[in-house]
Amino acid sequence: MLALVDERDDARLRERELVARAQSGDRAAIGELLVMHGPGLYRSVLLPRLGSEAAAKDALSETYAKVVERIHQFTWQNVGFYPWLRTVALRVALDALRARKRLLLWEADDVAREVDAASTVTPTDQALSDRRDREAARQKVDHALAQLNPRYARALRMRILEERPREEVAAALEVTPATFDVLLHRATAALKKALAAAEEADDHGETA
């Protein structure tokens, strides 16, 4: 246990040194910080919210550019560099969601609330923050599926989330593959309807 604490302290100390070097203009140090935290940021924050790998990579690139530009504004906290990096990424994701035209699981308002929370809630280290972000994303998916007819939810879960073959899912649902295609199409339409209703309720809630 003590060894684990020492190890964490050493890592934190090293990170603080990297931040100090980065703030004095050492680009290699910034690179090390990004290599250290970027993959988790992409997987836990950007990809679930933006819903496509291309959009998430663009947002990650934009986040990095902002970090390089504004690293001097960062003030060291005991939980390290990641909370600040995550807040920068959330702001980039928020801009991307405001500019997007299509329906997604996350709304811009959802991320705006997360940005607000990031400035008020006690920051945590990356491991805990990533776990919470991943759990929140799964809960969002579960909540969306819970709004649907259980048969639609099952079709989506098996075919889309679990990526099981079309024929296997059709057999599990006791329909032909062609009928399953229709079932999946209907499930998608129901999902869109549920998300749109949630968005509308959110808008009404804000204006009320």
Binding site: G38, P39, Y42, R43, S44, L47, P48, R49, L50, G51, S52, E53, K57, L60, R102, L103, L104, L105, W106, R134, A137, R138, K140, V141, A144, L156, I160, L161, E163, T188, L191, K192
Partner: peptide, 15 residues
């Protein structure tokens, strides 16, 4: 795209 977003939110792939 919406269905892929659902899958990526549930099980995001590493970069």
């Amino acid at each position: 795209s919406l269905l892929r977003a659902l899958a990526l939110a549930h099980e995001p792939r590493p970069i």
